[in-house]
Design a protein around this nucleic acid. Structure first.
Lengths: 219, 219
DNA sequence: GAGGATATTGACAGTCACTGACAATTGACA
DNA sequence: TGTCAATTGTCAGTGACTGTCAATATCCTC
């Protein structure tokens, strides 16, 4: 493996700096109250350059998140084929949370990344983009699950359904973590674990009965 | 009940016209390729007026959707308390689909509304807003569910979890409906019914075994 | 290590969504 | 009918984003 040339390294450095400075502005003074001009002035590049690296002001807010997601996908693909779909997803997130730290420190401090997650949750425009990105992830995940189970996604809806339910829980987790007081990496990990365990029981026909009969009420 | 004065009626008419014309442009030439100026020129109001009715270009795309959502919430609140949370949500959507037609024809043709749903699904910017709006709905729904079950949402995560899973399935339903060939109201209703019935089984530990044992694999 | 091919950047002008301020118009109501 | 208040239009301005083209910097070859 040859290390990349000066040109490539310079580009990477510009990109990383833009990301870090942007996240710093976003998390301290807020996303809306930060203009692209502020960012590029601080990094000393032209606005045009910013938009060559990021297609929008929103995109830079997800530069780190993107790396984390790729890590999760990798973990999911490595899961042993014996695991059921739900357990595979569950264990892959937990694995990912255990190892993200190493991956992102190259670009930004972990603490800045965690703060950026809260900015995303609390900024309507960013939250919207976050959710759309999540659904794109879901398609990818469903594809992996379908592959593991030897199913055709276009015929059998179960991969998409299971992933949708799983992701829904993950989203609620992120939401509640952002609102809570313990904003550490460990907190987000243990919340993930706890809430995923709630999913099965929450879908039982009745939360009152120990074991309810199935079947639905009449309209 | 006194009918509203001329001023109120005129406002409603302007609002409805803006909505209808906007949806017509969005669905025919696309959301991005439609400028606000085009809409206001066709309706013959100033751009400033448009932004007094709708806080953004995006918002007008969801004017009808909003009515549909209110109808669902109403249906959910009317569900008999005996029904479990999941069945109550399930039956409320199905009820809502059966009666939306009447509610929206006042503003736009049903067919235009259905086309607008597809535009939303296929336009990244609109999809993002759609998803954010959905999560706001989820909070409301979770509140209703918590009320029915006599639970405190801030203590017991189950209402949010169940609603998240439910909504995830609903989203996949809308997605697949948009991609499919039968773009009728009946199609969306029957897809909803079918996919909701898939949710329980999809979460079983294994999709291969008839009835799997619980418990999770090791990391 | 000079020089040309190529990639990257900066400067500038323009579009579009959106906002604040104030003046003009219009329905409401005495 | 005249006054009040709500609604609308005009205008000027900001900020995100794009196309274009010239300037600069890296790369690669001789």
């Amino acid at each position: 493996m040859t290390l990349p040339g000066l040109r490539e390294r310079k580009k990477q450095r510009t990109r990383d700096t833009l990301t870090r400075v942007a996240l710093e502005f976003f998390t301290t003074q807020g996303y809306e109250r930060t203009t692209v001009d502020e960012i590029v002035d601080a990094v000393e590049v032209s606005q045009r350059t910013f938009f060559r690296y990021f297609s929008s002001k929103e995109e830079v807010a997800f530069a780190v998140q993107q790396m984390v997601e790729e890590r999760f996908l990798e973990a999911l693909r490595q899961r042993p084929p014996g695991e059921g779909p739900f357990d595979a997803m569950r264990n892959a997130v937990l694995c990912a949370w255990d190892t993200i730290g190493d991956a992102i420190v190259e670009v930004v401090p972990v603490e800045l990344y965690l703060r950026s997650l809260q900015t995303i949750e609390s900024t309507p425009a960013l939250l919207a983009v976050h959710l759309r990105r999540s659904t794109e992830m879901e398609e990818t995940i469903a594809g992996i699950i379908a592959g593991r189970e030897g199913l055709d996604m276009d015929v059998d809806p179960r991969p998409r359904i299971a992933v949708a339910a799983f992701s829904g829980v993950m989203r609620v987790t992120g939401q509640l973590w952002g609102r809570g007081t313990d904003q550490s990496l460990e907190a987000i990990r243990s919340l993930t674990e706890e809430y995923l365990d709630h999913l099965g029981p929450a879908l039982a026909p009745s939360w009152r009965a120990r074991s309810g009969e199935s079947g639905h009420g009449a309209l």
